[in-house]
Design a protein around this nucleic acid. Sequence first.
DNA 1: TAAGGCAGCCTTACGCTGTAAGAACCCGAG
DNA 2: CTCGGGTTCTTACAGCGTAAGGCTGCCTTA
Lengths: 208, 208
Amino acid sequence: MLRAAVEIADADGLQAATMRRIGESLGAEAMSLYYHVANKNDLLDGLVDVLMDEITEAVDGDRPADDWKQALRQRILSARQVMLRHRWAPGLLEGRTSMRPAVVLYHDQLVGLMRSGGFSYDLAHHALHALGSRALGFSQELFDPSAGAGEVSDRMLAELASQVPNLAGMLAEIAHDDPESTIGWCDDQAEFEFALDLILDGLERLNS
Amino acid sequence: MLRAAVEIADADGLQAATMRRIGESLGAEAMSLYYHVANKNDLLDGLVDVLMDEITEAVDGDRPADDWKQALRQRILSARQVMLRHRWAPGLLEGRTSMRPAVVLYHDQLVGLMRSGGFSYDLAHHALHALGSRALGFSQELFDPSAGAGEVSDRMLAELASQVPNLAGMLAEIAHDDPESTIGWCDDQAEFEFALDLILDGLERLNS
DNA sequence: TAAGGCAGCCTTACGCTGTAAGAACCCGAG
DNA sequence: CTCGGGTTCTTACAGCGTAAGGCTGCCTTA
């Protein structure tokens, strides 16, 4: 049933994973699901657990790194792979207020890595806040994924240049040479890793 | 009408701002709202615009800073004040895919500040990604705001210590001496500023 | 002054959501 | 065979956004 929900969310987004649709894909009625799940919140919690299982699995495949920074980087980028597999995952995790044990455990392991790297508890605490959702492999993009990026007329470009000259200049120079975006607008792997390394480098400096 | 929606969201959360409830608070029927607004998406976009107006207003009150870093910091912390006034704002902005002109304009100004500080377009682009939602004054916390943080029994503490020793140690040391949290769990002003400064310092180093 | 016209609001109804309450089924144990 | 209880289905309800169309009252124009 969680598997069915995941498949639906993968295919048509999280909002498509309604009780009726999940039931249908299982050859059952919506209300039948309620024997196995208390309510929809419970089901979403289950989805979070599925995600965390996948992350744990992905992370276990990593070869042990020598230093804390490399270890953190590996772990987080592994987690990110799961987010890329399930585009709905960021949205789900953002909205959840659940504090699932698996999520807590994941962060505990992150702190463990930092501690073994010589972090004080205080710095580790700050680090968790600084990483935020990036610890789980995603960052919320405020701009649109693929929102009519195709049809930019010359008139629009002109208006763009006059009203938001700095962004216009930036976009012109960036030239968007990234063929396929991964998550969101231009949040490709490079952008994510840049921000991640920026934070990790900063932490390293504070830890020295 | 947007004012009414804001008041409802302030009082009872964004999910309480339904068409029927907004209409009721205006002494009108739900469907009457559709004369002024195309659909609910439109209304939410309007709320985003309200937020951006408040941010612009707050930002304009700042005295001009001498260097880019201070200017960025001031601007972002001013924006954060708006987020603190409207707890529903982060959730709204996260979910929105709208690319409102006001949001674009805000980011354009951020890029402008960076450019005047000597940033290349490329670095400014990276910076926007690194800041993410922090540019608007909030960061998504994956843990719960006030989720039964009060009743931690000794048994729970014991289990906590054995299952997530690193977090347990961290929590014990942090001791949570922050009386009132502002947004989320312990995302108080200090945590936000720490993360913000970490990023700004990193950018400064890359810009030198 | 009379006649439109249209801005603004209301009524009704539909399909969708999660889910409460209870009946029906199936299947192994006595 | 009967029972019990684990599993499923049926029916129904409230609440959501909103499509379609009707009513009212002011403002303009002949």
